[in-house]
């Protein structure tokens, strides 16, 4: 039997984008959060350059408010694939006074990450930052280009974006500017899960159903953690939950779930009436929460 490659349109598109990044930029980096989307990016990058190693480092912006499971997973992946990992800490920006920790009931370090990210871009002179954002996640992200230009301050000028015609990517920038690159722009949440399933990609345990100490606020399930502010009348209980997205522990809500395998997760998402970012506390701040953060340089 003749061995004929079966083309996966979305996978080939992502690989094409990775190769354009390496060809067009001097100093790219992959923004790695430990979530399923950035883990998928790592697999796609492997495929794009095999048998050569992934030709750029990973950058993790550590808020200090992580799920411990994610950090353990990150370190294992880096070791197995012999990746070059750079970690920069939000705590440093707090300590040197460039950002101020939020206070109060909804305090989170989510938006503080932007300053740390921009500092790291300047420190290492990164000209392309590859991220796992998808257009189906959120309406402001639906307006993103695949190569999205940021000015010297990391800002997104959403009203004046470069036209992205055909499949041609124009990565020309001035010194000091950088481009955010989104290889899985056209993937949906289900596409990512189906890919993880097909490729047997390992993911952190918090994506699967587990028993966790939680409390309820505003109809969302919050993790009981030393990093999450909790009122006295917000009672902690144990419930079977899992996470659909993985961000900072202070801004990622859990969903009740029995899904303990990829198959069951896919089944659950198919039947779900709640969107993926419906459990992102950071998006709930206002109708334009994402657009505002992106303008300031958020990923």
């Amino acid at each position: 039997m003749k061995k004929i490659l079966e083309n996966n349109v979305l996978e080939s598109e992502a690989i094409y984008i990775f190769r354009e990044v390496v060809a067009q930029f001097e100093n790219p980096v992959l923004l790695f959060s430990g979530g399923k989307d950035s883990i998928t990016l790592v697999r796609l990058a492997q495929k794009a350059f095999f048998p050569a190693k992934i030709p750029f480092p990973l950058l993790h912006i550590d808020t200090g408010h992580n799920f411990p499971e994610t950090i353990a997973f990150r370190d294992k992946l880096v070791k197995e694939l012999e990746l070059n990992l750079i970690v920069r800490h939000v705590q440093e920006n707090i300590d040197n006074g460039t950002v101020t920790e939020e206070t109060g009931k909804y305090s989170s370090r989510n938006s503080l990450q932007t300053a740390t990210l921009l500092d790291a871009i300047e420190e290492f002179k990164f000209d392309a930052c590859i991220g796992g954002a998808r257009r189906d996640e959120e309406k402001a992200r639906a307006k993103e280009r695949i190569f999205s230009v940021r000015n010297d301050f990391g800002e997104w000028d959403e009203k004046n974006q470069r036209p992205e015609v055909f499949d041609m990517l124009n990565g020309r920038i001035e010194l000091g500017q950088n481009v955010r690159v989104f290889p899985i722009s056209n993937w949906t949440e289900l596409d990512v899960w189906n890919y993880i399933d097909k490729e047997n990609i390992e993911i952190p345990s918090i994506y699967f159903s587990h028993l966790r100490e939680i409390f309820e606020r505003d109809g969302l399930i919050w993790s009981a953690s030393q990093h999450v502010y909790r009122d006295e009348d917000e009672l902690v209980e144990k419930r079977k939950v899992r996470f659909r997205t993985v961000g900072d522990i202070t801004c990622t809500a859990a969903v009740e779930s029995e899904a303990d395998s990829i198959d069951r997760i896919i089944e659950e998402i198919r039947a779900s009436t709640l969107s993926e970012r419906g459990a992102r506390i950071d998006d709930k701040r206002s109708e334009a929460a994402m657009e505002t953060r992106k303008q300031q340089g958020y990923f």
Binding site: K3, S12, E13, F50
Partner: peptide, 16 residues
């Protein structure tokens, strides 16, 4: 014709 760690005898239009 290589695709990741496999070799193929034929690859269709659209494939990277």
């Amino acid at each position: 014709i290589h695709f990741f760690d496999e070799e193929f005898e034929e690859a269709p239009a659209g494939s990277s």
